Lab assay of single mutants.
Amino acid sequence: TGIVNVSSSLNVRSSASTSSKVIGSLSGNTKVTIVGEEGAFYKIEYKGSHGYVAAEYI
């Protein structure tokens, strides 16, 4: 489990890349469940599926 540490919002992406499609966003202080790690990204549970967020902001 981690907490989103941004002042505005954090993009949730379809894969572990900044060039991948943005599938949603999370606001600051949102609690997320981390299920894996790929490079600089965490794989998280997101809306019944999975998404990827930049690990530096969690």
Results as ranks from 00 to 15, higher is better:
residue 32 V to S: 00
residue 7 S to A: 12
residue 50 H to Y: 15
residue 43 K to G: 02
residue 38 E to N: 06
residue 22 V to M: 05
residue 37 E to M: 15
residue 50 H to A: 07
residue 47 K to T: 05
residue 21 K to P: 14
residue 9 S to G: 14
residue 46 Y to C: 04
residue 16 A to N: 04
residue 15 S to V: 06
residue 42 Y to W: 05
residue 26 L to S: 01
residue 56 E to K: 13
residue 2 G to A: 08
residue 20 S to G: 14
residue 19 S to F: 08
residue 57 Y to A: 09
residue 55 A to G: 05
residue 2 G to E: 04
residue 53 V to K: 00
residue 58 I to W: 03
residue 58 I to K: 02
residue 48 G to M: 05
residue 54 A to C: 15
residue 37 E to L: 15
residue 6 V to N: 08
residue 7 S to L: 11
residue 25 S to N: 10
residue 53 V to Y: 02
residue 2 G to K: 06
residue 1 T to K: 09
residue 42 Y to I: 09
residue 12 V to L: 02
residue 5 N to W: 08
residue 57 Y to N: 08
residue 2 G to R: 08
residue 6 V to L: 09
residue 52 Y to C: 02
residue 22 V to T: 07
residue 21 K to M: 12
residue 53 V to G: 01
residue 30 T to M: 10
residue 50 H to N: 06
residue 10 L to W: 02
residue 8 S to A: 10
residue 44 I to A: 00
residue 30 T to Q: 11
residue 57 Y to T: 05
residue 25 S to L: 13
residue 42 Y to T: 05
residue 51 G to I: 03
residue 7 S to C: 15
residue 8 S to G: 15
residue 20 S to K: 02
residue 55 A to C: 11
residue 5 N to V: 12
residue 57 Y to K: 08
residue 1 T to D: 08
residue 46 Y to N: 01
residue 15 S to W: 07
residue 31 K to C: 14
residue 42 Y to G: 03
residue 36 G to P: 00
residue 3 I to N: 06
residue 22 V to N: 04
residue 3 I to H: 09
residue 25 S to E: 11
residue 44 I to M: 01
residue 3 I to C: 13
residue 35 V to H: 05
residue 47 K to R: 09
residue 31 K to N: 08
residue 11 N to S: 13
residue 53 V to E: 00
residue 25 S to I: 15
residue 19 S to A: 10
residue 3 I to L: 10
residue 1 T to M: 12
residue 30 T to H: 07
residue 49 S to R: 11
residue 20 S to Y: 07
residue 57 Y to Q: 07
residue 41 F to S: 03
residue 4 V to Y: 04
residue 41 F to I: 02
residue 45 E to I: 13
residue 56 E to W: 07
residue 31 K to H: 11
residue 24 G to V: 03
residue 11 N to H: 14
residue 6 V to A: 10
residue 48 G to W: 05
residue 14 S to L: 13
residue 51 G to D: 01
residue 34 I to E: 00
residue 8 S to T: 14
residue 49 S to G: 15
residue 26 L to R: 01
residue 39 G to N: 09
residue 38 E to Q: 08
residue 43 K to D: 03
residue 58 I to T: 02
residue 36 G to T: 05
residue 48 G to L: 05
residue 33 T to Y: 10
residue 37 E to Q: 15
residue 4 V to R: 04
residue 41 F to M: 04
residue 15 S to I: 06
residue 38 E to R: 06
residue 44 I to W: 00
residue 50 H to F: 15
residue 22 V to G: 02
residue 25 S to F: 13
residue 39 G to K: 06
residue 54 A to I: 14
residue 27 S to M: 13
residue 5 N to Q: 08
residue 17 S to Q: 07
residue 23 I to V: 07
residue 6 V to F: 08
residue 5 N to M: 13
residue 6 V to H: 11
residue 21 K to E: 12
residue 21 K to L: 10
residue 40 A to K: 11
residue 16 A to C: 06
residue 17 S to W: 04
residue 4 V to P: 04
residue 28 G to W: 13
residue 14 S to W: 08
residue 19 S to R: 12
residue 55 A to H: 07
residue 8 S to V: 12
residue 26 L to F: 04
residue 46 Y to P: 00
residue 50 H to K: 04
residue 16 A to K: 03
residue 33 T to R: 11
residue 6 V to R: 09
residue 25 S to A: 11
residue 12 V to M: 02
residue 40 A to Q: 11
residue 3 I to Q: 06
residue 58 I to R: 00
residue 2 G to C: 12
residue 4 V to M: 05
residue 55 A to K: 15
residue 1 T to P: 08
residue 16 A to Q: 03
residue 43 K to W: 05
residue 57 Y to H: 11
residue 33 T to S: 08
residue 41 F to R: 01
residue 26 L to I: 13
residue 20 S to E: 03
residue 20 S to D: 03
residue 43 K to S: 03
residue 31 K to M: 13
residue 46 Y to E: 01
residue 33 T to I: 14
residue 19 S to M: 10
residue 19 S to L: 11
residue 56 E to I: 13
residue 4 V to H: 04
residue 53 V to W: 00
residue 39 G to P: 02
residue 42 Y to M: 07
residue 46 Y to A: 00
residue 26 L to P: 00
residue 8 S to Y: 11
residue 55 A to P: 02
residue 57 Y to F: 13
residue 17 S to V: 05
residue 38 E to S: 08
residue 15 S to H: 14
residue 38 E to L: 07
residue 11 N to K: 14
residue 35 V to R: 04
residue 40 A to E: 14
residue 19 S to W: 07
residue 26 L to Y: 02
residue 46 Y to L: 03
residue 49 S to A: 13
residue 47 K to D: 11
residue 12 V to P: 01
residue 46 Y to V: 02
residue 33 T to D: 06
residue 42 Y to Q: 03
residue 28 G to R: 13
residue 29 N to L: 11
residue 17 S to H: 09
residue 7 S to K: 14
residue 38 E to Y: 10
residue 23 I to D: 00
residue 28 G to I: 10
residue 53 V to A: 04
residue 41 F to L: 02
residue 30 T to R: 05
residue 4 V to A: 05
residue 51 G to Y: 04
residue 41 F to C: 05
residue 57 Y to V: 04
residue 33 T to P: 03
residue 38 E to I: 09
residue 46 Y to K: 00
residue 16 A to W: 03
residue 34 I to F: 03
residue 11 N to G: 08
residue 48 G to P: 03
residue 57 Y to E: 07
residue 18 T to A: 13
residue 34 I to A: 00
residue 12 V to Y: 00
residue 6 V to T: 13
residue 47 K to H: 10
residue 55 A to D: 02
residue 53 V to H: 00
residue 20 S to R: 04
residue 54 A to N: 10
residue 9 S to F: 12
residue 55 A to I: 15
residue 52 Y to F: 10
residue 3 I to F: 13
residue 45 E to N: 07
residue 36 G to E: 06
residue 32 V to Y: 03
residue 27 S to N: 11
residue 43 K to I: 14
residue 23 I to Q: 02
residue 13 R to N: 09
residue 39 G to H: 05
residue 2 G to W: 08
residue 10 L to F: 03
residue 33 T to A: 07
residue 49 S to C: 09
residue 18 T to P: 14
residue 44 I to P: 03
residue 19 S to C: 13
residue 32 V to P: 01
residue 51 G to W: 03
residue 46 Y to T: 01
residue 46 Y to S: 00
residue 20 S to P: 01
residue 44 I to D: 02
residue 48 G to N: 08
residue 58 I to C: 03
residue 44 I to C: 05
residue 18 T to G: 12
residue 22 V to C: 08
residue 30 T to F: 06
residue 50 H to G: 04
residue 13 R to S: 06
residue 36 G to S: 09
residue 53 V to I: 08
residue 4 V to G: 04
residue 13 R to V: 09
residue 8 S to P: 13
residue 58 I to L: 06
residue 34 I to L: 05
residue 37 E to Y: 14
residue 22 V to Q: 04
residue 37 E to S: 14
residue 33 T to C: 15
residue 24 G to Q: 02
residue 30 T to A: 11
residue 54 A to M: 14
residue 25 S to P: 03
residue 37 E to P: 05
residue 45 E to S: 07
residue 58 I to A: 02
